[in-house]
Design a protein around this nucleic acid. Structure first.
Length: 310
DNA sequence: AAGACGAAAGTGGTTGA
DNA sequence: TCAACAACTTTCGTCTT
């Protein structure tokens, strides 16, 4: 069968890799980084665990899935009753496989099985797309392989992985939402999220406030024009560096609030604050900054005047 | 009366010595 | 490891509509 080797070291870019089959490792000869270690299934499919190649493969429609604890590769050999349907040669083979299956049912696999069903539960609660679920499952699997779950609750790592997956695909869910869905404290999710992204070297761009607009606007029943307007506002704000260091949800909320005001679809600060998961005070602060830095005052006044005329 | 505004004190997390 | 610090929250009193 075709072997899928890792092409180069993610740490130093070296092509000088050595491959130890017995240990199930690929080691970079230049910097010593162990790229893959101790796979759950050390049969011929174990190379699938590398994140880069796995991600590529998923895009080209490979049948493998991380949402099943064994990547859908069939460690479930079947019950004894099933075995008698086969001829003796096949039967022997299947008994051997069953034996293997039992032998490699390690704690890791059991953990994965539990964790992935929890992950499914949370992600369906949040109505997340399957891509996210898949990504999160992969992240979790990596985390388990690196032993990052030790000392942490399984649920919190699941939540952290989901949060990371959301961020990666620009489908931001707030920590609050994840917290509500999983029953894990917000700070705990944040902690494990930071931990696993650091340890697994997952690159995540700071989330863009504009990504939140569509969802918030829908929750507030605001028009498409208002959405467009608030995205424009956010873009302007980013140009004058109003956005760096601030919570993206606060900025999104304020921009949406202003945009609604301008388009005559006024929502109270309270309403916007609730859906965005920030306080009115934060909206006010961002709002004030937006008015100061951008030329929005004229527009606001215009609207107010119009309101009086009517 | 409800919403908007702002001051003051408190919280959790990051940073830098 | 600890203190300073920024962002955000909570609370509460005042002003505006």
């Amino acid at each position: 069968m075709t072997r899928n080797f890792v092409k180069k070291c993610p740490e130093c870019g070296s092509l000088n890799l050595s491959y130890h089959k017995e240990k199930g490792e690929i080691v970079c000869k230049d910097c010593g980084l162990v790229i893959e270690e101790k796979m759950v299934d050390f049969d011929q499919e174990w190379r699938e665990f590398d994140s880069e190649t796995a991600a590529q493969r998923r895009r080209t429609g490979a049948p493998m899935t991380y949402t099943q604890f064994d990547q859908g590769l069939g460690t479930d050999v079947g019950s004894k009753a099933d075995l008698y349907k086969f001829g003796s040669k096949t039967k022997n083979k299947l008994f051997r496989l069953r034996k293997w299956q039992q032998r490699i049912s390690t704690a890791i696999e059991r953990n994965l099985k539990m964790a992935l069903s929890e992950l499914k539960r949370v992600s369906s609660f949040l109505k997340l797309p399957s891509m996210i679920e898949e990504e999160a499952s992969m992240i979790y699997t990596h985390a388990v392989q690196r032993g990052l779950v030790r000392g942490r609750s399984m649920e919190s790592v699941v939540s952290g992985a989901l949060y990371a997956a959301c961020r990666r695909y620009d489908v931001p869910r707030t920590l609050d939402e994840l917290s509500e869905a999983s029953g894990i404290e917000k700070k705990e999710i944040g902690r494990t999220y930071r931990f696993i992204t650091r340890e697994l070297q997952i690159k995540i761009l700071p989330s863009n406030p504009a990504d939140y607009i569509a969802r918030f606007a829908t929750a507030l029943k605001l028009s498409a024009e208002t959405q467009t307007k608030s995205v424009e506002i956010i873009e302007q704000a980013q140009k004058v560096e109003l956005t760096s260091g601030r919570g993206p949800t606060g900025i999104a909320a304020a921009a949406l609030y202003v945009a609604a005001l301008i388009n005559g679809e006024k929502r109270t600060q309270r309403e916007v604050a609730d859906v965005a998961g920030v306080t009115e005070v934060t909206i006010r602060n961002r709002y004030k900054e937006l008015l100061e830095e951008l030329d929005l005052e004229k527009e606001i006044k215009k609207i107010k005047k119009k309101g009086k005329d009517n």
